[in-house]
């Protein structure tokens, strides 16, 4: 049984401007020790997917529905508030994008770290402190004892993100949801943090859901990648297969807009024309059609289903009628 099983997850927000379908029919599953990348532009539903895994979508205005949303066979949707609290931080925890604001500026690092343990485990203060120091040591913070008595503003951004990771891993959760964990950091620190997450994953056996719009991060970290657009999964494949031959014009477009070190470094970057659609007023048919260079008539009238492709050992799916044609075109880099 999969650690985390999501089938046909739908999240909508009922606002004054109409119903916003932030997530629409997303399915995936996560095994122990696996890393799943969630890729997409801003507003494509990555973060909302993550929040609904924690039961943190504000209701109302949000409405979360799914055929199945289970953690080790237990349905997250049916949990009471109390049960959810016990899961959060303990079995599923989360790392936020901006380490500058996700620590309480008035509490010491130690106080905030030990709080996790106080909430979930009956430990003495001394024991909690020892484990907090160990946690900081694990994420490579020097002099962890001293850091415990410092306030967040006394640490650098990379340090704070390490603290956040330590906080996320303190209770040895089974799933770690990383919501753009490296976006706010500079490139060298990014590499260190990713390296750290990878090694911690190996030692703890934690499954990671990595939300990002940075394809480079996904390529380095993920086993499998889900590409989202306008609340829908448009392509899912193993990282290698995806980067080798994207089968959806949006994926191809994303890959095309990554700067490369080879070839003409002076040339302008490719970009996807247009802008992401308004989720409250999606066009009929394929949501990506207005920006797609490969669109055919059928795209305007029908919503493309997820076609299953590839072998059973490395399954991949894509939501494009023209995936077969793309298979050849995208090998050259895709210029949708």
């Amino acid at each position: 049984m999969a650690l985390l099983d999501v089938r046909n997850l739908r999240v909508r927000f009922e606002t004054h401007h109409g119903v916003v379908r932030a997530v629409d029919g997303v399915s995936f599953s996560l095994e122990e020790g696996e890393t799943l990348g969630l890729v997409g532009e801003s507003g494509s539903g990555k973060s909302v997917t993550n929040l609904s895994l924690m039961g943190l979508v504000p209701q109302p205005p949000g409405v979360v529905e799914a055929d199945a949303l289970t953690l080790e066979g237990r349905s997250i949707l049916e949990m009471s508030d109390e049960e959810l609290r016990r899961v959060r931080g303990n079995e599923v925890s989360m790392i936020f994008q901006d380490p500058m604001t996700s620590l309480n500026p008035l509490l010491t690092i130690g106080r905030q770290l030990t709080e996790v343990l106080e909430v979930h485990e009956r430990v003495t203060r001394r024991e909690a402190r020892r484990r907090a120091a160990k946690g900081l040591d694990d994420v490579g913070i020097p002099e962890p004892e001293k850091r415990l008595d410092q306030y967040p503003h006394e640490l650098s951004g990379g340090m704070r993100q390490r603290v956040m990771i330590a906080m996320g891993l303190l209770c040895s959760p089974k799933v770690l949801l990383a919501d753009e964990p490296t976006t706010a950091l500079d490139v060298t620190i990014q590499a260190q943090i990713l390296e750290l997450m990878k090694s911690l994953q190996e030692s703890h056996g934690t499954a990671i859901v990595l939300v990002t719009h940075d394809l480079g991060v996904v390529a380095g970290m993920s086993d499998r990648v889900n590409v989202m657009y306008a609340g829908k999964l448009v392509e899912t494949a193993s990282a290698e297969a995806l980067f080798e031959s994207p089968r959806h014009p949006y994926t191809a477009g994303l890959l095309g807009s990554v700067p490369r070190l080879t070839g003409d470094t002076g040339a302008a970057l490719d970009s996807i024309p247009g802008s992401p659609p308004d989720l409250a007023a999606l066009p009929g048919g394929c949501a990506f059609r207005p920006r797609c260079g490969q669109a055919i008539d059928r795209c305007a009238s029908e919503v493309p289903p997820l076609h299953v492709l590839g072998s059973s050992s490395s399954p991949r799916r894509t939501a494009c009628f023209e995936h077969a044609r793309l298979g050849g075109a995208a090998a050259q880099g895709g210029d949708a």
């Binding site: 959060r88 925890s93 936020f96 709080e115 956040m164």
Partner: peptide, 24 residues
Amino acid sequence: EFIEAARVMGASTLRILLTHVVPN
């Protein structure tokens, strides 16, 4: 985000109010 982080960590509303909101 730190209130969000506290919620993600599994803290109850009362706890969030007392340890994070009130001192601030």
